[in-house]
Amino acid sequence: MTEFKRIPPAQAHALREQGAVVVDVRDPQTFNAQHIPGAQHLDNHSIADFIAKADLDKPLVVVCYHGNSSQSAAAYLVGQGFSDVYSMDGGFELWRNTYPDETVQSTAE
């Protein structure tokens, strides 16, 4: 069985530039306040729909606060059939410190 890989923000950035899907598993309020551009918010309510519509072979980078919860989420997604899954070490906090100009706020929907 395929397992997820742990990667630093620089590798996550490169994968994102190459078209990888970025998913953020932080709480909705924190995600809306600031997140990686193009990231999709995933929670218990949206994950089934995300999995149903996703390309299981497309690289997938999972982001959380500090890099811990994303490992559990990445392992779950591998178990759901995703073949190329990454957990970003350091989470959004390290991304924000590494790429301070590459964060956005959600617009009101």
Rank of each mutant, 00 (worst) to 15 (best):
T30S: 11
Q80W: 13
D57V: 03
A20W: 00
L94G: 02
P9Q: 02
L60R: 00
Q29K: 04
V78D: 11
D49S: 13
C64T: 08
L56N: 02
D43V: 06
G79P: 10
G38R: 12
Y99L: 01
A39L: 13
V22N: 00
F31K: 01
F4S: 06
D27E: 15
G19S: 07
R16D: 07
L94Q: 08
V63A: 04
A108H: 03
I36V: 05
I47F: 01
A39W: 04
F50W: 14
P28F: 09
L60G: 04
D84A: 04
Q71G: 09
A10D: 12
Q34W: 04
M88N: 06
G38H: 14
I51F: 03
S69K: 06
T30H: 13
G90E: 02
P8E: 06
Q34L: 15
A20Y: 00
T2D: 14
S87I: 01
D24F: 03
Q34D: 15
T2G: 11
I7D: 02
P8L: 05
G90T: 13
S46E: 10
D24A: 00
R6K: 14
F92R: 06
K53V: 10
D101K: 15
L77Y: 12
P28V: 04
L42G: 05
S70C: 15
S83H: 01
T107A: 11
G79F: 12
I47A: 02
A73P: 08
P9D: 05
D27Q: 10
F31Y: 15
I51M: 11
Q105R: 15
S46N: 02
D89Y: 10
T103P: 04
T103S: 15
F92V: 14
S83V: 00
W95H: 00
A74K: 07
E102H: 11
G67H: 06
A48H: 05
M1Q: 14
Q11N: 05
F4T: 03
A39C: 09
L77R: 03
H35Q: 03
A14S: 12
V85D: 10
D49R: 13
K5N: 10
F82K: 02
